[in-house]
Design a protein around this nucleic acid. Structure first.
Lengths: 105, 105
DNA sequence: TTGACATATCGATAAACTTCGATATAATCG
DNA sequence: CGATTATATCGAAGTTTATCGATATGTCAA
């Protein structure tokens, strides 16, 4: 129910990435948690717009979401993101070997 | 200069991937060259539709194109595709180490 | 040349997506 | 409780995108 089943994961992933505003949001919260308002202020777009993009990233399961009092913290799920990148490479470039090694945890 | 604006490469790449029809085309020609007609027959969509998607893949520089007499052969540029995957991971998941090693050459 | 085949481009249509103002929901505080 | 703050959802407008029929371009063969 959470994920429409006909659409391959690689398509959901690519669609989630396929917008400049979304990529800018992703860069902002790739390495530390950000509230929606912090993202709004950093981005210079309306709050519903940021919420909309965050919803898409949530659906693609590319972000950690954590309620912290009044605020909600968003942060990129780097593991998921990297795994999706590897999956894309495996499917469309099977002749290349892509390895995922965590640098720390 | 081949790339028009200040749209990041990662956005062009993600947009090129962000369609189911296109991903099916990409799977068909990821490992061996295919003519447009072969793709049309395998896909069950109209020829202009396939040409349209191939143009998008060309713009993203994700395919090799080779004229072979009357036919034009398309094949995924696996190297480029894998490099783009790595770039996406580097930008949005810098805490993960992604390595690209060719399995053959 | 002409004709046949392969692919690209054009133009129209419909569906999907982005954006934002207005409003609803949820949590906190007094 | 009511007021305030933070975020999500709704609805509309504008933009982009996918699709396909018609047509143009390019290539080969006779």
């Amino acid at each position: 129910m959470v994920k429409p089943q006909d659409i391959p994961e690689t398509v959901t992933f690519a669609k989630a990435l396929a917008d400049d505003t979304r990529q800018r949001i992703m860069e902002l919260c790739c390495c530390n948690p950000m509230t929606v308002n912090e993202l709004v202020e950093a981005m210079g777009v309306a709050q519903p717009t940021v919420s909309h993009h965050l919803a898409i990233l949530r659906n693609a399961e590319l972000v950690h979401v954590e309620r912290r009092g009044k605020h909600i913290l968003y942060q990129i799920d780097q593991q998921k993101l990297a795994e999706n990148c590897c999956q894309v490479a495996r499917v469309f470039a099977p002749g290349m070997d892509i390895e995922l090694a965590e640098s720390e945890s």
